[in-house]
Amino acid sequence: MRRPGTPLFLAKSGYRRRRLHDAARLVPVFGVFLLFLPILWAPGETEARDTASDGIYLFGIWAGLIWAAAVLAPRLRQTTQSDPDLERDGRDRG
């Protein structure tokens, strides 16, 4: 029985934690996509002198990846510390 005032989805914190793990898995996927994007620009074939601008793009993406990992890392650490049970979700649950 749901008491009035409590959220409908009981394991809300657990749900957030699992999404956090999904986010951790997705970071490198986004990274691969963004870092392979310059292939489509084919800088060798264009007339423009691309080294400087492409360099800024690459280092920008790089910094973004570091930032994303830095934001996620402490939260992931908390989840693994507080709840050893969660360590088992090598196979995904919901």
């Binding site: 793990h21 951790a24 898995r25 970071v27 490198p28 996927v29 990274g31 691969v32 870092l35 080294t51 492409d54 360099g55 690459l58 790089w62 990846l65 570091i66 994303a68 990992a69 992931l76 090598g90």
Partner: peptide, 25 residues
């Protein structure tokens, strides 16, 4: 060869920001 040198560092970056996949295990 210009910017190609960053590939040597980008690979490890991807592996480390994706530590939840392989390195953790």
């Amino acid at each position: 060869s210009g910017l190609e040198f960053v590939t040597i560092y980008l690979g490890p970056t991807l592996v480390f920001v994706g530590w939840w996949w392989v390195l953790r295990k």
